[in-house]
Design a protein around this nucleic acid. Structure first.
Length: 825
RNA sequence: GCCCGAGUGGCGGAAUCGGCAGACGCAACGGACUUAAAAUCCGUCGGGACUUAAAUCCCGUACCAGUUCAAGUCUGGUCUCGGGCACCA
């Protein structure tokens, strides 16, 4: 064994050796319980950052720990490799996206390998390769065939100067990030997935995920946004056409003094046609439609509207109320129309004040002051008692809502209804670097899905990028022109590609069977490996990625392709890595490169520091000195192991005979550490405290080994066990020492140690004496002393007697092995 | 505005079931070793009062109240910071 801890040589050696032994390759094994440990696959930006290092270090501890516990662990890695940055690089540097992406993957893969993570690299997938996106396309077609993929017109951000569609992130303060031209809204035919069909189940099944953080579940719950209310159908005064509105406050129906349509509502045009209102209303609608989604839905935007010259009838009162159009009503939510009840809705109140619309009180507080129109400063939005509401007068709000809905239903003018904020998932991207949507348009047959046998629809690799950022697919005749699979006539392909979230909604299934070229994944394999036992990733994916994956799983289960309806049993969301209190970013200049750290200190030090500095869910403050500390710790352990191997290992064992008190103390420390580390990993993911427990063990061993009467066999046992405990955290280091201690098989194949309950029992414990809850003294007593005995012993103490002297003893509280509290007055 | 979190030494953090607040580490300071430095080892390390010293006492987990023999931990309220959603009818 070398005196010097040469991490470069050690890490390189073991990475090679593990590879050679295929230590981390797994297959289905019916004799072992399976464990699927998954970290979110990265976008191959080119370089690993500290967030990745943290994510994969956490995952590796769990994977290695479970493996040592006897589980058959699936721990794969791959690349979420479609997406915009590759196109931007192509435009900027003229490198084809495929080349750029594959080079980045190669680079990041070698960085990842230098971390020594226990991935089964044989299962690597990359979503941009045909053998993967073939199945993304196939799954699209499954959704299409089951009516879950459809096309409709939807608004997009459109840059008129670049003639291209922009993602929301590419719109900077209402302008195109590339050319600064003002962004418009444009309606385009786009593909959607019908995720709203699953809204209720996506909501309900959150209760079946006790292993998810509440925070994430709440975020999804809010995103789905279930809202119970009623649909109420008003009728237009002249044509008698239905105008449904959605409201959660049917009890305020009698207070509706106007009705507002969203600017996009088709009825607007019908009602203004050939009237004097046509011109000004169209102008208003046009101006609203040109606003981007972001500007439009900002609370900062002032509420503006316009009377459109028409009236509708309140279905219960037949009262005639004016119809308006206003920018604050969203066409996508509810029915795209709302009734205005100024007295009982803040927004309606402000709108009515601004445009001088009548305000009518129909709810009075159940107790307290009566509302008076004259001195109303705000809407009264609480529940109360219905007034000026005909037969409903005197009814409470909650009951009123049900009764009004029932009355409407009787008249066929409404019913109770539930709406969701969740909208269908827009998956069309007018982009090149994505999975082509496998649809063909034929003049005779219309929209035709590409037959399975023709998959994949290959993305052409020879492409030229124009500086406009427009998708080059539109200009490649060989791609666009094809023949209709139904009639054989000339036809053309869809040029939109899929949102990259589609690719990442099923990758965890592909890992189960990554080389299958007959199926997206064999059901027997997904049946064996799924669900993911532990999923680890950033909280930034709490909503979209996790919701989409849940949706896919439910849909695929409905198609009979997988055996379950939820993909991720347990979820761990790790915090960010900060430097100087801020997220690491190039613009702030506070980036620490993992490559440099690994080069300077080794992967084991990097992993150890990042796991030690903070519990995984919390943000982590990077500290160069902290890294030094972790490095120092490993060297300290190395020196101890080195000293032991050189001095003690040759000596005959002295372990026979009685254990000295120091020996027993050492055993108690060792087994206490095993217990602590096991529970910290398994129950709480508190890797930071697991590591500090190992540090305490090392401190204890240093004291012990200086003793004249030390027992080398015992010391050896402790060092050995400690290497097993360290193996998930610092795999190369533990392996090297393990090997030097004379083992021929990998430490990573070693079973996780059990602790010896008997070793934990202390002979003596320190007990605290409290007087009125304040610590006054300590004493050492034999452990397990009966409460009465303990009380008697403590009361006999000088400090206890002094406390009681001259006072009344009220009571004595005794907690065995812990404390005695004397209450005096 | 609504919905979640979180506030503990100079710093990262610990205290897992209401029972010794500050484990472990970093930084700092003092010492040993050394020609010197690095490395390593030993020691001190929340604030204050009193003291030659030992000891003893008081205060202290954002703030204010409460429950309890006992509160960082439980309850109610306030403040600050972070995150999510945000014209959702």
């Amino acid at each position: 064994m070398q005196e010097h801890y040469d991490f470069h040589a050690i890490e390189a050696k073991w990475q090679r050796e593990w590879d050679r032994q295929k230590l981390y390759q797994v297959t289905e094994d019916q004799n072992k319980p399976k464990y699927y440990c998954l970290e979110m696959f990265p976008y191959p930006s080119g370089n690993l950052h500290m967030g990745h290092v943290r994510n994969y270090s956490i995952g590796d501890v769990i994977a290695r720990f479970k493996s040592m516990q006897g589980f058959n662990v699936l721990h794969p890695m791959g690349w979420d490799s479609f997406g915009l940055p590759a196109e931007n690089a192509a435009i900027k540097h003229g490198i084809p996206p495929a080349k750029w992406t594959l080079e980045n993957i190669a680079n990041m893969k070698s960085q990842l390998k230098s971390m020594g993570i226990s991935y089964d690299w044989d299962r690597e997938v990359a979503s941009c390769l045909p053998d993967y996106y073939q199945w993304t396309q196939w799954l699209f077609l499954q959704l299409y065939k089951h009516g879950l993929a459809y096309k409709k017109k939807a608004g997009v951000n459109w840059c008129p100067s670049c003639a291209t569609v922009l993602a929301n992130e590419q719109v900077v303060e209402g302008a195109c990030e590339r050319c600064d031209a003002p962004v418009e809204k444009k309606a385009l035919e786009q593909w959607f997935f019908r995720i709203t069909d699953y809204a209720q189940e996506l909501l309900d099944d959150l209760d079946k995920l006790p292993g998810w953080p509440d925070k994430v579940k709440t975020m999804q719950e809010n995103w789905i946004g279930r809202s119970e209310g009623a649909e109420i159908r008003f009728k237009t005064e002249i044509s008698g056409e239905d105008v449904p509105v959605f409201t959660t406050r049917a009890d305020t129906l009698f207070g509706a003094t106007y009705l507002v349509l969203a600017p996009e509502h088709p009825l607007v045009e019908d009602l203004i046609k050939d009237t004097e209102y046509a011109r000004p209303v169209r102008k208003f609608v046009q101006s609203v439609r040109q606003m981007t989604e972001i500007a439009r839905t900002s609370t900062e935007t002032p509420k503006e509207g316009m009377f459109i010259g028409a009236y509708v009838l309140n279905p219960l009162t037949q009262e005639k109320i004016p119809v308006w159009v206003a920018n604050y009503v969203l066409f996508e939510y509810g029915t795209g129309a709302v009734m205005g009840v100024p007295a009982h809705d803040e927004r309606d109140f402000a709108f009515a004040k601004k445009y001088n619309l009548p305000i009518k009180i129909v709810i009075q507080p159940a107790e307290g002051e009566t509302l008076e129109l004259a001195n109303m400063q705000d809407a009264y939005v609480e529940d109360g008692v219905m007034v000026h509401s005909g037969e409903f007068d005197g009814t409470g709000s909650a009951e009123g809502r049900r009764k009004v809905a029932a009355a409407l239903e009787k008249k066929q003018a409404g019913k109770e209804r539930i709406t969701y904020r969740l909208r269908d998932w827009l998956i069309s991207r007018q982009r090149y670097w994505g999975a082509p949507i496998p649809i063909i348009y034929c003049e005779h047959c219309g929209e035709v899905p590409v037959p399975d046998r023709d998959l994949p629809v290959m993305l052409p690799l020879e492409v030229e990028f124009k500086p406009t950022g427009e998708s080059p697919l539109k200009y490649i005749p060989e791609f666009i022109n094809t023949v209709c699979p139904v009639c054989g006539q000339p036809a053309h392909r869809e040029t939109d590609t899929m949102d990259t979230f589609v690719c990442s909604s099923w990758y965890f299934l592909r890992y189960c069977d990554p080389r299958n070229n007959m199926e997206y994944a064999a059901k027997e394999k997904t049946d064996y490996w799924m669900d993911v036992d532990q999923y680890i990733g950033g909280v930034e994916h709490a909503i979209l990625h996790l919701m989409y994956s849940r949706f896919f799983m439910k849909a695929l289960n409905d198609f009979g392709l997988v055996g379950m309806r939820e993909p991720f049993k347990n979820l761990l969301t790790q915090g960010m890595v900060l430097k100087d209190g801020a997220k690491m970013s190039k613009s702030k200049g506070n980036v620490v490169s993992p490559e440099e750290i690994i080069h300077k200190y080794g992967a084991d030090t990097a992993r150890l520091f990042i796991l030690f500095a903070s519990p995984p869910e919390r943000d982590l403050e990077w500290s160069d000195q902290g890294v030094e500390g972790s490095f120092r710790f490993l060297r300290r352990v190395w020196r101890m192991a080195y000293g032991f191997v050189r001095e003690e290992v040759k000596e005959p064992s002295l372990s026979q005979g009685e254990l000295t008190p120091a020996d027993k103390e050492l055993r108690r420390l060792l087994h206490g550490t095993i217990k602590k580390v096991t529970e910290d990993i398994e129950l709480r993911f508190n890797f930071n405290t697991a590591i500090s427990a190992i540090m305490e063990l090392v401190n204890g061993l240093y004291l012990y080994k200086e003793r004249e009467d030390r027992n080398p066999a015992l010391l050896g046992e402790a060092i050995e066990k400690m290497m097993v405990l360290l193996a998930p955290f610092t795999p190369h280091f533990a392996e090297e020492v393990w090997c030097e201690l004379g083992h021929t098989e990998s430490v990573h194949l070693e079973p996780w140690p059990e602790y010896d309950r008997n070793a934990l029992i202390a002979e003596a414990v320190e007990v605290v004496l409290q007087v009125n809850g304040k610590v006054r003294d300590r004493l050492t007593v034999p452990s397990g002393l009966a409460p009465q005995e303990l009380e008697r012993t403590v009361l006999a103490m000088e400090r206890a007697q002094a406390a009681i002297a001259g006072k009344t003893l009220v009571k004595v509280i005794t907690i065995p092995d812990k404390l005695v509290n004397i209450v005096v007055k």
